[in-house]
Nucleic acid binder design. Structure first.
Length: 848
RNA sequence: GCCCCCUUGGCGGAAUUGGCAGACGCAGCGGACUUAAAAUCCGCUUCCCGCGAGGGAGUGCAGGUUCGAGCCCUGCAGGGGGCACCA
């Protein structure tokens, strides 16, 4: 009996696959293509279990599709720009490039150790000038095509570190590193005009049928299309008019105030001459920039003293500056109708403003408004020419009247804002423009691309190293040759990940994209990644695909990702000692009686909540340790067992042991299998026929499960087949051929999941051809088809008997068989049968 | 605050999408093998009553629709996620 040594056979087959170039992809128009892509990782240093899960799923798809005859493209690369590299530079003094490339080398080794079937010739790292030079070239094309804008925008500013902070770096209004109170500052920044295609991005969502419904919904909400109207109010004592956006113009007669965002130009103007208003504006800034913070904060307003005149009834309305109005949305100003909007009502009650109901529920009198606004449908009241109309009718009538008198017009707005891509950081792709005092903003001449990041930078001072570099930013203006200044902002790292899938089609091509290759490979047939990218990354990539098509880098491609799968997180127990301190799993041991104790001190340990693996919770399991202890195949199998892939998976040692046990059992089955000739006649042997049926049902079910992404169910089919094999007498000669067929089927089906072991066993079963190159097994329909079915018989919905009947039996016959059953007769007793429902091959329900 | 998702045995989950609830695995219990243990193999395993045949209850809670509901509808409870400079 031979021993299953995972690390030995895994190394062996990885070398063979590599030497034979099994996973190299080439354009081949004679075969159907299949592009499977997992979201490429940020090179943080080590792969984590989330990667292992995501990439195992992708690899199963890639290997399965290959076996199904597809020409599969399955590439891997590195999303290599970003803040962690700069943090490492600041904290440990290591250069971001060095840190990043070292991390890539280690993570590449780890991924290769997992046996993923990537075409490594196509590997890309986005921080490499050979990648980002194309990004710069495309940006210039976007600039020419009018897809780029430059304007002022707010940022979080840390006055001590002299740096812009990401939202996640702002903790309770303070900078995460300095602890200084964060300010908001206005900077001139670059924007990609994603709002120009908002309508299309929204409309096309409907056709992404192979995307999860909830991702489409999240994008829909993010784009946030709303149909409404602009209303212009005259301002008393001023020549300019106040423009507000509303989706409830039907309630205009219920208006009792107007409210402006604190960033509204009118508020800014008034604040210059009003220190109390200026102080209010500053207070509001401290709430933060996120929608959640603004929405949950107490609604506060400041009466500006301005008065707006109602366009129809001429009432004079107070104008407030308010903390819940967003400058980025609509017109940055609203009118408040307290009776029919909860926020407006809260505000009106707080500041003693009138509450005028203008919509009454159908058939009801004018409602009394207490603390709850009335947001439902109804008919208009107290509203002049709108009285008696429904809400929808009133909107239409009001829009027409506003347009007729020039006090407003219909308007569609989006919650979606343009994509700000400027980042005041070093470790990103330099934005290829030059600022000249005379000529303005000049694109870097294409011949001068790439604009490379300088290597000689320091992180010993706060701020952007590019900005304080002694020479880098000083260049001659490309037009007038006078001294000018290089743009020192770099791109948001979402820019790199918005087109990498296109670059993979021809990763070394001297243009950003090889149109011929991209036309063949794109769209990505199956994209796999985390739900955390449901909105930004995917939306930006969809926008980029359109922008690239507009600038000729891609053909008329509707969408980059035809199919999307979002996998769940990997969770693990947390461990807490008596003092309440968190412990790492390797510090915890389980005693024979099941009690958790500290591995070295023996002190009792309590198991805490099961949470997403993270360093801060100390509940991480290093994939490398698992591979060393059990092998890559065990890790892969465990990742797919039990939990459905879209749901969270709890990492447990028991589960890993179970996966390993299964592989050992499979090994033993092959190792101990009797030697026998192929094709022995199995006719007439009932056990052999039953096994053959089980085998072909397993092929059918397993294949369907893979197609449906039900990996956990697919693995259950393997167990079932193995159990069926155990039931036949493998010593009986008549069963030999059927037994061998079952065994070979097991090995072939497990191939995409545990590829090394499967390849080894395939060879031991006497095959010369690599399993990786062997077509997928086909199920024999005549063996899958069942001649008899077990149907349930219910009386009044309660199960009383089960009958085995020929498949496809007529309703009347099934009914007769059911009524003839003793247990059914007993249940009916002396009651009258009123009705019998027969669902063929399923169920008979007798109603008495 | 707004939007979304989830809730099935001791545990992870399955249920052909309205038709036998609990496939498969884990854990547990019993047995075989062994001097013994590990490993392996066989059997049992939703809960309650019953020696048994059998009967009853059961998919977070409360209702509803239906011949029939884990699945559809209404309300509620609990858990989780997203909300624009992390990637």
């Amino acid at each position: 009996m031979s021993r299953y040594d995972a690390s030995e056979i895994e190394a062996k087959w990885q070398a063979i696959w590599e030497n034979r170039g099994c996973f190299h992809a080439e354009v081949d128009r004679s075969r159907p293509k299949y592009y499977v892509l997992e979201m490429f990782p940020y090179p943080s240093g080590k792969i984590h279990m989330g990667h292992v899960r995501n990439y195992t799923q992708g690899d199963v798809v890639a290997r399965y599709k290959r076996a199904r005859g597809f020409n599969v493209l399955h590439p891997m690369g590195w999303d290599a720009f970003g803040m962690p590299a700069e943090n490492a530079a600041i904290e440990r003094g290591v250069h971001p490039a060095r840190w990043t490339y070292d991390n890539i080398a280690n993570m590449r080794r780890q991924l290769q150790r997992m046996g993923f079937s990537y075409d490594w010739r196509r590997e890309i790292a986005t921080c490499h000038p050979e990648y980002y030079r194309h990004e710069q070239a495309m940006f210039l094309d976007f600039l020419d095509a009018g897809l780029v804008d430059r304007r002022e925008s707010w940022v979080n500013w840390d006055p001590v570190d002299n740096t812009v902070l990401a939202n996640e770096q702002v903790i309770d209004g303070r900078g995460w590193r300095s602890g200084a109170t964060v300010e908001r500052r206005k900077l001139t920044q670059w924007f990609l005009r994603i709002t120009a295609v908002a309508d299309e991005l929204l409309a096309e969502l409907e056709r992404l049928t192979r995307w999860p419904e909830r991702v489409r919904l999240m994008q829909e909400n993010w784009i946030g299309r709303s149909e409404g109207a602009l209303v212009r109010f005259a301002l008393e004592g001023r020549a300019d008019r106040l423009e507000v956006f509303t989706t409830r113009h039907d309630t205009l007669f219920g208006a009792s105030f107007c409210a402006l965002a604190i960033d509204h130009p009118l508020v800014q103007e008034l604040a210059r001459g009003d220190t109390r208003l200026a102080a209010f504006v500053e207070d509001c800034r401290r709430i933060g920039t996120t929608e959640a913070a603004i929405e949950t904060a107490e609604k506060l307003g400041f009466d500006t003293g301005l008065r707006a005149r109602h366009p129809f009834d001429g009432r004079s309305l107070p104008v407030y500056a308010a903390n819940f109005v967003l400058m980025e949305y609509g017109a940055g100003a609203i009118f408040g109708c307290p009776a029919h909007d909860q926020r407006d009502l809260d505000f009106a009650r707080k500041y003693g403003l009138p509450v005028i109901p203008v919509v009454a529920p159908e058939g009801a009198p004018a409602p009394a408004i207490g603390t709850e606004a009335l947001t439902g449908d109804g008919r208009l009241i107290n509203s002049d020419f709108l009285n008696g109309l429904t809400v929808a009718e009133a909107k239409r009538a009001m829009a027409e009247r506003l347009e007729a008198i020039g006090a407003g017009e219909r308007k569609i707005t989006y919650r979606l804002r343009d994509w700000g891509v400027s980042r005041q950081r070093y470790w990103g792709c330099p934005i290829p423009v030059i600022h000249c005092a005379d000529c303005g903003v000049m694109p870097v001449p294409r011949a001068d691309l790439p604009v490379r990041l300088p290597d000689d930078v320091t992180f010993d001072q706060p701020g952007n190293p590019l900005d304080r570099h002694p020479t880098w930013k000083h260049v001659a203006c490309p037009r007038c040759a006078r001294s000018a200044r290089r743009e020192t902002d770099t791109f948001d790292t979402f820019v790199e990940s918005s087109w990498y899938f296109a670059r993979f089609c021809a990763a070394r091509y001297d243009q950003p994209v090889d149109r011929a290759a991209a036309d063949y490979w794109l769209p990505v047939d199956q994209y796999l990644g985390g739900i955390e990218h449901a909105i930004l990354h995917l939306l930006y990539s969809r926008f980029y695909t359109r922008a690239m098509a507009k600038t000729g880098h891609l053909g008329a491609l509707a969408e980059p990702f035809a199919g999307l799968f979002t996998q769940g997180m990997v969770l693990h127990e947390t461990y807490v000692d008596a003092a309440g301190a968190l412990l790492f799993p390797e510090q915890v041991a389980r005693r024979a009686d099941g009690q958790l104790v500290h591995a070295s001190t023996g002190a009792p340990v309590r198991a805490g909540a099961v949470e997403k693996m993270s360093k801060s919770k100390r509940n991480v399991i290093d994939p490398e340790d698992i591979i060393k202890a059990h092998g890559a195949d065990t890790a892969r199998l465990f990742m797919l067992s039990d939990s459905p892939p879209e749901r969270d998976l709890e990492w447990t040692t028991a589960g890993v042991d179970g996966a390993r046990r299964f592989l050992h059992r499979l090994w033993r089955l092959v190792d101990e299998a009797p030697t026998f000739a192929d094709g022995a006649d199995t006719a007439g042997d009932a056990g052999a026929l039953a096994l053959r049926r089980a085998t072909h049902r397993a092929i059918k079910a397993f294949t369907d499960d893979l197609d449906g992404f039900h990996f956990n169910k697919a693995i259950a089919r393997l167990h079932e087949l193995m159990n069926a094999m155990a039931e036949v007498d493998e010593g009986g000669t008549a069963a030999h051929a059927a037994y061998r067929e079952a065994l070979e089927t097991l090995v072939r089906l497990v191939g995409p999941i545990a590829p090394h072991l499967a390849e080894e066993l395939w060879q031991r079963l006497g095959h010369d051809r690599l399993l990786a190159m062997t077509p997928w097994p086909a199920a024999d329909a005549s063996l899958v088809f069942q001649t008899d079915v077990t149907i349930a018989v219910q009386v009044n919905g309660r199960l009383r008997a089960t009958l085995t009947l020929p498949k496809g039996m007529a309703r009347a016959e099934a009914e007769r068989a059911a009524l003839a059953d003793e247990a059914v007769k007993r249940a009916i007793a002396d009651q009258t049968v009123r009705r019998v429902i027969v669902v063929p091959d399923r169920i008979v329900n007798v109603v008495v």
